[in-house]
Design a protein around this nucleic acid. Structure first.
Lengths: 168, 168
DNA sequence: GACCCTAGATTTCAATTTGCAACTTAAATT
DNA sequence: AATTTAAGTTGCAAATTGAAATCTAGGGTC
């Protein structure tokens, strides 16, 4: 009772709805993954993903509208359109990889392929984790949700328990 | 032309479809976020998210079916049901945070609240990044996609260019 | 015990979204 | 000139979503 009370005093603001409006549709992440793997044309997406053509057209348009992909005509073959990742689209890579790693570990027991590796040593990238500002991995027990107002007042306290967080 | 040819030689296997089957519905991440913030009852989800009751019931059922939430009756008030995160559900935190951070940076310009902080020092967690096995942050330019078969044969090569990756 | 309230759904029905198949249009190829 | 290819669009049936009303079991109050 008290904890929920505390929670309600926190103004909940979250960009998750906005993020989901851009990427929450069923095929959006699949299309994004395909672009990360080098696909860029309508027919490529259609044949490799097996998505309906009208839905694909609609999703590509949405991704372009949200600034995640850019539409470029190909000068050497003017029938073709190239869909390219923008910087904003590229910034979704950690989310995509996190989701894929979760799926590999907890849903499908099949190893993901292709594998994303470090170009320097050819080793697969690390599991995506929540980390402290200095890079230390953090588990759920090391984490607290605090109200931004309390944080800015240098009085971070857990929104459930009210308990102060961190050294003073 | 050559790069797509190379790509087609790679057996594409991906747990992304499986992950999206569990979490790809419109409200799933919103419900998950609510549980991470301490909500656990039907009415709490309904009033704070504003989701239709039938859809909420259906989504909770799906999340339970996928082993992301667990359903517990409350002994002290037998009308109530408590939905709790499982270990599998908790493992989605990095994905959720990555998506939220992306939204904060690229979509909504409003600061996220509440803030996830390190319990040790009360500082907000780091941005979710793709990192090397040793924790070094990696940008897109430091990454390559390689066929798992090539990786296991200790011959990692970029699936587009065929270029060998890493020192030999 | 009669009454009302609460939590967690289920049902009904309209509106929207999805998906398949066929068609279109412009550009390239034979 | 005829064919093929790339990237869509259109029409229509099926599935999904959402708002509102209803339902059921349990609690609280007098």
């Amino acid at each position: 009772m008290k904890s929920i009370d505390q929670l309600k005093r926190t103004v909940i603001q979250c960009s998750l709805p906005a993020a989901l409006e851009a990427m929450g549709e069923r095929w959006s992440f699949m299309i994004l993954r395909a672009t990360f793997n080098g696909l860029s044309h309508f027919e490529q997406f259609q044949t490799t993903l097996g998505i309906a053509r009208n839905i694909l057209a609609n999703r590509l348009q949405r991704l372009v509208d949200h600034g995640i992909l850019e539409r470029h005509g190909c000068p050497e073959d003017r029938r073709k359109v190239e869909y390219r990742l923008t910087e904003k689209g590229e910034a979704l890579l950690p989310t995509l990889i996190a989701l894929r790693q979760w799926g590999e570990k907890w849903e499908a027991n099949i190893p993901n392929n292709p594998v994303l590796v470090d170009s320097r040593d050819g080793k697969p990238v690390a599991d995506i984790l929540v980390r402290a500002h200095d890079g230390r991995p953090l588990g759920l027990g090391d984490l607290r949700w605090v109200d931004r107002a309390d944080l800015e007042a240098d009085q971070p306290r857990c929104i459930y328990t009210g308990e102060p967080v961190g050294a003073k």
